[in-house]
Amino acid sequence: MASPLGRVLRSSTTIFTFGSLDNADLPAFGALVAAEVGPTWVYGLVYEVVIQDDPFVRQVVAATEGLTAERIEDMRQRRQVPVEITALTVAYRQGDRVYQRLPPRPPAALQPIWACDETTTAQVLADFAFFRTVLNAAHCPSEELLAASLRRAAACRPPEQEKAYLLEAGRELARLLAADLPRLDAILRRLAP
């Protein structure tokens, strides 16, 4: 966790949206991010990145002749229209223990949001209780998100454990989605390397 990705714009028990002015270092879809809420850390999976426009940026885009590198960087880094990134809350940590369930409280406005390193990602997503949280989230592309987060979580483990982790995840998915084979198939196809 080197520097914050941005700060919370709004949050609820299930999701939090943060703003970032740094277009160059946006978190990837499915990446795990974290916010400190009192004695706990709240973890979420990035599922939506929205780059807003406004009349000024439209004018600059339309005027392709004057689109210099300085103007592009100005628009990306300095304009007061932050990139909005939304994460689905999947877990929290209290002390050394990680709970894959909704946290007691969501992050407060302007709280810094941090990217999670490989060790944290591997720890937080070690169990599969968060699958149900993702699969039940109607407002996000849950199959895509689950597959992306699992691929990332697997890559954060030692190489010899990657395959075992994905196999275990696949078994859990098969159990959860036994009655919904098309959905299971969609996720498993997206898990393929």
């Binding site: 300085e70 960087e73 300095r78």
Partner: peptide, 10 residues
Amino acid sequence: VLRQGSGQAP
């Protein structure tokens, strides 16, 4: 402050 030709954000 915009530095023409720098490629930097102002």
